[in-house]
Every structure is written in C-alpha cells, then in structure tokens.
Computed example of a mutant assay.
Amino acid sequence: MTDETTPAEPTPAEPTPAEPTPAAPSGTGRIVLLTTSHRVAPGVLSWPAWQTLRTADRVLCADPDHPQLPYLREAGVAVGFERPDASELVDACAGGRTVVVLPSGEGDRRLTDGLARLAGSGRVAMPGLELLPGSYDLPGARLLDLVAVMDRIRRECPWTSQKTHEGLAKYAIEEAYELVEAIEDGDRDELLEELGDVLLQVVFHARIAEEADPGEDGEGAEPFSIDDVAGALVAKLVHRHPHVFGDEKAETPDDVRAHWLRTKAVEKRRESVTDGIPLGQPGLALAAKLAGRVRAGGVPVELPRGEGVGYELLALAARAEEAGIDPETALRAAARTYRDAIRAAEGVGGPAA
C-alpha cells in the first residue's frame, strides 16, 4: 500500500490504448491487470473496470490492505487473497475463465515477469493479457503529490519546519529572477526546473499559513491552505474573465485589459489608476506600468519634463509600453548582448554560465 505522503511513480494522465493483444486460443481465457491511481479516491473506478470486476470468474489481490478492497466488498465483488505464480495463474484461466489481478507492488512484477517468460518459452498456451486502467490521473494530479511531500517535509525537516513567511521572502524574489533568466535563455530544461522552484514557494507559504493561530480572542492570523489559495484564484479568474465565462464581449487584448482594470478598480475600491502598483519594482518596469495604466484609464496627463537621464528613461519606457514592448525585457536583452561582447573582447569565450 502506498504511503500517503510518498508519491508513487506517476501514472498516465489518461489511459493509453495498449497494442492489441493477439487473440488467445479458444479456452485459454484471459488475465486482466486492473491498475488504479493512488491520487483518485478509492472506489472511484471506470465503468469498464466495474463491468470486468462483476463478470470475472476470479478476482485476486495479494495485498489484504489494498485501498480498493472495502469498496469491492461493498459492491459484492469477492476477492481472493492469493499470490499465485505465473503458471498457476495461467491454469486458473483454463476453460475460458477471466481472472482479474489487482496489482499491489513489487510482488506483481514477479508475476508479470513470470508470465513473460512463459509466453516466450512457446511451451504453454497463454491466455490473453489485458491492462485495464480502473482509474487514472487527470491533468494537475501530481500537485497532490507535491502537497503531500511538502506536508511531510514541513513536519520532519529541521530546516523547513522553522521557516516563516518573512524568512522565505527573499527566495521568492530570487526564484522569480531565475525563472526570467531561463525564459531569456530559451532553455526548456531550466524553464521546467525554475517553474517548479517558483511553485514550491507558493506551496511552502500556503503550508506555513495552515499553522496560523487566530488566538483566543480571534484577532490573530486566520489559517488558510493551498486549497484556499487555489479556490480564491479560480474565483478571481472567473470573475475577471466574463468574456470567457459570461456574456461580455472582448475582441482585442486591449478590450480585455480595459475590463480587467475596471473590475480591479471596483474590487479594490481604488481612487487612482496608480493604486496597487508596487513602487519597489525595477525602475523601467515601474515607469512602463504607470504609462500603461494612464493609457488604459484615459487619464489626461502629460509625461513630466525635466533635465537628466531619469526623464529620458521615463519617456523611453512610456514609448516602449505604447508600442507593446516591455522596456525592462528589452534592456535586459541588450545588456546580455553587451555582456557577451565584453567577454569576447576579454577572450573569455561564450556566455557566462
């Protein structure tokens, strides 16, 4: 039985049709290996799985603690707790019988290897062999493993168990920059890893938030979980996309952006288009964000004029934003080219690692 906090090997996101099994000689029967995902609630099985279980001549499982067993008993499916070897299983199918086997770990590999050896020997009339997915993972199912692993690490790891929101804040910034770098490098392997690192920060903070103590007077921090985070995000996305989930119309990205800003202004009760813009972000990104809000909100304000490079950069950032260019990204790309030119002039070679 799989430990609830230890992810098993991933199962397919959806069942993949196997290669057709060659027709077995009449009377040799068939063996059905019924697989299930530990990420799906026990008892939730596909209709073909229930049909096969109800009509099988025998159902075998070597694990008396298999999570599906209580639900099979409730459905009136008799299960034998036997661990037959390959030849015994073949004999059990004689006369055209169907035997269903519920896999339960390493012991079943011995069985399947034995069946393969028998089939390869050519000395035995083999029954048909079918792999039937009783339940399988939907997209996003591996997130359940992530939550379970994070929960265990939080309980048992001396370093992880002591971390706070404040102590982790710097890592969120670092991981975000590493993600940007992976995108700029066009490195798909790095992108995969860095997305995982960013996701870890979300799950880590949500796990810490579960431990919040509201206090006896109820004035402390209210706990919340990763499900609360996901639920709030889903509600927000649905509410802010009425052109997808409702009756609103949006023909262009600008239509979507304008609606988004109007909705957020109502939600946040903002008095200015500048409300909610973090002033601590990099300067070019800040300037472009302000210019974008002004343009989308139709605020009649001119760019401030003044001496110095700051006002020149402000004008460049506003111009870039109007043209659909992220000035921060553009400057970083130019800076990376400059860095490569410096290294080439130094005779160092390729880009820095």
Rank of each mutant, 00 (worst) to 15 (best):
T5Y: 10
E9W: 13
A23S: 12
R30K: 15
H38R: 08
P42R: 04
W47A: 14
D57T: 11
C61W: 04
C61P: 05
Y71P: 03
V77R: 04
V79G: 08
V79R: 08
F81Q: 11
E82S: 10
P84R: 06
A86H: 02
G114F: 03
A119D: 07
R123K: 13
V124C: 02
Y136H: 14
G140V: 06
L146P: 02
L146N: 03
V149E: 01
V149P: 05
D151R: 01
I153Y: 09
C157H: 13
K163G: 02
I173F: 11
E174I: 02
A176W: 06
E178F: 02
I183N: 06
L191D: 04
D197P: 03
Q201K: 05
V202W: 08
V202F: 11
F204P: 03
A212I: 01
P214Y: 03
S225K: 05
D228T: 06
G231Q: 09
L237Q: 13
L237S: 01
D247E: 15
V256Q: 09
R257L: 15
R262S: 12
T263Y: 09
G283E: 10
A287M: 15
A288G: 00
E302K: 12
E307H: 10
A335D: 00
R339D: 13
I342H: 08
A344P: 04
V348S: 10
G350H: 12
